[in-house]
Amino acid sequence: MPADWICEDCEQENPGHEVECIACTAPRPAASPYAGYKVARVVSVEAIPKTKLRALVVEVEEGTTVTIVTNARVDAGETRHIVVATIGSIVRIDGEEVEVKKATVGGRRSEGMLVDAPMLGWKGGAAGAAVFLPESYPIGSEPPPSRP
């Protein structure tokens, strides 16, 4: 069942199945193409022995961290923010929409994935390369619609 939503016009909370507001009949807002994508801060990076994988602990909201296992190059001490897709979000990989789910990768639990420029629809940037943003982008916010 779709998640409940709040009307942008009158702030009425509406059941997820409603396509218009039950109070003012305003249409349900379209979902953001970046729903579930968040600007995150790298807290720590740990190499997983005998693999090319890294386990990243990232802060996705103030005080909330998740572990993401990746083969993308992210080094400890990075001062920039990255973009991640959280559990339940939809990413586009090779033209196919894929839901991000909890998984075990390299023997470690992974609770999301790093997002690359093609997943964001940005011009330039390699597939599989993490998207870095300046620290001016707040942790937990949606990524910008184009490369800064």
Rank of each mutant, 00 (worst) to 15 (best):
W122N: 06
M119K: 10
A31C: 09
I22V: 12
V105S: 01
L120T: 02
V115C: 05
R80F: 07
V19S: 14
L120V: 13
R108C: 10
E61S: 11
C10D: 03
T70E: 00
E111W: 05
A47L: 01
S110M: 00
R73M: 11
A40W: 01
A127R: 05
T25N: 11
E99D: 12
A47N: 08
E18D: 12
E61P: 06
T67K: 14
V45L: 04
A40T: 04
E8Y: 11
R147L: 14
G16R: 12
R54M: 05
C24I: 06
G63I: 08
L133W: 03
L133Y: 03
G106Y: 10
T25I: 08
P145C: 14
Y137V: 07
Q12E: 14
G124C: 07
T67L: 08
V105D: 03
A85I: 00
H17R: 13
P145L: 07
I68R: 03
P49M: 02
E62W: 11
S141R: 04
S136K: 05
G106S: 09
V98S: 11
T65V: 13
A31R: 15
E13G: 11
I82E: 07
A130W: 09
G125Q: 04
P134N: 14
E96I: 14
P29I: 01
A72R: 02
Y37C: 12
S136L: 02
Y34V: 03
I82R: 05
R108D: 10
V69K: 08
G125L: 06
A72S: 05
K101R: 15
K102E: 14
I48N: 03
A85D: 01
E11H: 14
L56Q: 01
H81P: 12
V57M: 13
G125S: 01
A85H: 00
T104N: 01
V58A: 04
G16A: 04
V66T: 01
P144T: 11
E111C: 11
E135V: 14
D94M: 14
A47H: 05
E62Q: 15
Q12H: 07
E61K: 03
T51F: 11
G36V: 03
A35H: 13
L53Q: 10
S136N: 04
P33G: 04
G121T: 00
P33L: 05
S110Q: 00
P138V: 02
V105A: 00
C24G: 06
S146K: 14
A23R: 15
A117I: 10
V84T: 03
S32F: 07
L133A: 05
G77E: 01
V91S: 02
I68S: 04
G107F: 02
I90V: 05
T64G: 02
V83W: 06
M113V: 04
V60E: 02
P49W: 00
A47G: 03
E111V: 01
G128M: 00
L53R: 10
E20G: 09
G124K: 07
I48H: 02
R109Y: 08
R92K: 15
C7P: 10
R73P: 09
E97Y: 03
